[in-house]
Simulated assay, not measured.
Amino acid sequence: MPVLRFDNVSKLYSGGQQALSDVSFAVEAGEMLFVTGRSGAGKSTLLKLIHLAERASRGAVLFEERNLARVRGGGIAAHRRKIGVVYQNHQLLMDRSVSDNVALPLVLRGMKRVEIGKRVRSILDRLGLAARARALPSQLSAGEQQRVGIARAVIAEPVLLVADEPSGNLDPALSAEIMALLAALSERGTGVLVASHDLGLVKRMRKRVLVLDQGRLVDDIAPEDLIDE
């Protein structure tokens, strides 16, 4: 059963901009894939529909076979708890420590402090951040800040992780490191959907690629069909 499915999804903004037009695809549990396209192609809108920051104008977005059009009120927060989000600009709380930032999703769930501590230590160790647990985000490098963002996104063990240009501000070596971390998550069973305009990086990852052009899904490329430039 796909964890996520778009069935002929269109998004028309109130100003008349057609951000997506009849987009259909599915993401399996544990699958990692990329969505790429030029600026304005519809990548960010697609991610917003998954996270219920926006609603489809037509068609259906299904998460675990539930139509997100039917998710309202308190159900929105419950849905978002199943999805991890990694942002290009990290969106960390600058006055809180690395540990506090990573713990936030579990605090919001009301998890016991002892269990939160165990989980935070485990994920920070896994991402090579154990020594930075008490540091503030301003004391970290860009790569470390992005890893903190990933740790926060995955600590609650989401069914799906969506990442919007997660390596956009990083050099090639750090970009490769971040992508390797995301690929490792998919191998543990989390679906991973990454929006990126870095075609070279996308091709090197050898994962499925969805190509958007002016809101339309114009290609769905299997890993074996990717050709190096």
Rank of each mutant, 00 (worst) to 15 (best):
A184L: 06
G168K: 06
G191C: 01
E187R: 10
D100N: 11
L47M: 11
A41G: 08
T190M: 02
M1L: 09
L212H: 03
G117M: 11
A56L: 05
E157C: 09
A176D: 11
S167Q: 07
S39N: 15
G143E: 11
Q18I: 13
A222S: 11
A41D: 05
K203T: 08
R80N: 08
A151C: 04
S44N: 07
L124K: 05
G128S: 03
A133K: 14
Q146G: 02
S39D: 12
L92E: 07
P172G: 06
L20F: 10
L12M: 14
A41T: 07
L127P: 05
A180P: 05
V9Q: 04
S99L: 08
S175H: 01
H51K: 14
S141G: 13
V192C: 00
R134Q: 15
A135W: 12
A69W: 10
V3G: 07
L4W: 06
R134Y: 13
A130V: 10
L185C: 07
L127T: 03
R132P: 08
L140H: 08
L170G: 02
F6C: 02
R38S: 15
V23H: 05
V209D: 00
L201K: 00
V202D: 01
L136G: 07
L104Y: 14
S24W: 14
K118Q: 11
E115V: 09
L174E: 09
R132T: 03
R113C: 13
S24E: 11
A153N: 07
V98R: 08
S167E: 08
K43M: 03
G189Y: 00
A153E: 06
G117K: 12
A151D: 02
L136P: 04
A60V: 10
L129N: 03
